[in-house]
């Protein structure tokens, strides 16, 4: 019996070192995978900052685009982006959150609901240019809104709607059923349960989703070019029914000019866009960490 255990130990020992080696190899591979991602991001950032930092100044916020790089700014593009974000949020948030609540809390579990759910998830993966074409056909031409901020915002709202619906549903699903049952047990109606409990507890996660959806919208160019956002605008937009341009389009325009000075300006524009994006994402993370309720 003692020889038997000794024999077992030998093969176990041999296998163990081999298994440990496999673990090490996997660790190294995984390490390189993360390294690659980070290194790419860093190269990109360093490159953009080296090109753009000399051009970064307050002038970018106060001046309109110009053919002289040292006089050119992002004023109209920044205003366009802010207007667009505001109008998009105004339209996308109520509709998106409402649809999420309905699907999670009220919709009957049947084929039609499942069909809608699958399609919403698929819509989140549709390339943005398709939304641009839809916006051009429907809002710009059919509804006769023209190449206005409101048409752009409606297109963007469609684009981010699936993201908001999906994150809202996930947030609502994370609220424990016991809460709903407790509220229902003391006589609350479905609407009261949703309004006073489910929505309140899931609000931080919904907000995170909304901010992430907005930060996707702020970086989009293709759908806005498709609906006819302009590239050179040297005046402040007057309201939702005015023509407009946005940050990514202005950056795109500068990159395509022959003079290298404009490429520096474009890099500075990218830095500003990055700062806006990162602060939006940081806000989302902060809100999640601060407001999330742990059950």
């Amino acid at each position: 019996m003692s020889t038997l255990t000794a024999l077992k130990d030998v093969t176990f020992e041999r296998n163990l070192s081999f298994r440990k080696l496999k673990g090490k190899i996997f660790e190294i591979l995984a390490f390189f995978a993360i390294l690659l991602g980070i290194a790419m991001l860093l190269t990109l950032l360093v490159d953009v900052f080296l090109d753009g930092l000399p051009w970064l100044s307050t002038r970018l916020f106060t001046e309109f685009p110009s053919r002289f790089p040292e006089k050119a700014g992002l004023r109209s593009a920044l205003q366009g982006s802010i207007w667009l974000m505001f109008l998009t949020a105004l339209m996308a948030i109520p509709v998106g959150v409402g649809a999420g609540i309905y699907l999670e809390e009220f919709a009957p579990q049947n084929r039609i609901t499942r069909f809608i759910e699958i399609n919403v998830a698929n819509l989140a993966g549709v390339p943005s240019i398709i939304y641009g074409l839809l916006g051009l056909g429907l809002f710009v031409r059919q509804l006769g809104l023209g190449r206005t901020l409101i048409a752009g915002a409606m297109t963007m709202a469609l684009l981010v709607l699936p993201i908001i619906i999906v994150t809202t549903r996930e947030a609502i699903r994370a609220v424990p059923n016991s809460i709903r049952q407790a509220a229902l047990a003391i006589g609350a109606t479905d609407w009261e349960v949703s309004r006073d409990h489910v929505l309140v507890y899931s609000a931080p996660a919904i907000l995170t989703g909304v901010i992430l959806a907005m930060s996707r919208a702020i970086g989009e160019t293709a759908p806005l070019i498709t609906i006819g956002a302009l590239t050179y605008i040297a005046f402040d937009p007057k309201g939702p029914f005015d023509i407009f341009t946005v940050l990514p389009i202005q950056i795109f325009n500068w990159v395509s000019l022959p003079q290298p000075a404009f490429h520096g300006l474009a890099a500075a524009g990218i830095i500003i866009l990055l700062i806006v994006l990162l602060s939006m994402n940081a806000l989302a993370i902060w809100l999640r960490n601060r407001l999330t309720i742990h059950w």
């Binding site: 110009s66 053919r67 956002a229 302009l230 590239t231 050179y232 040297a234 005046f235 341009t245």
Partner: peptide, 26 residues
């Protein structure tokens, strides 16, 4: 052609600030 039209629009705006000339590149 856009860079030329943009340059003209930029100078034009100095004389007629009330006329807005946006330029697109389709």
């Amino acid at each position: 052609v856009a860079p030329i039209t943009q340059a003209v629009a930029e100078e034009f705006a100095k004389v007629y600030p009330q006329v807005r000339v946006p330029v697109g590149i389709s």
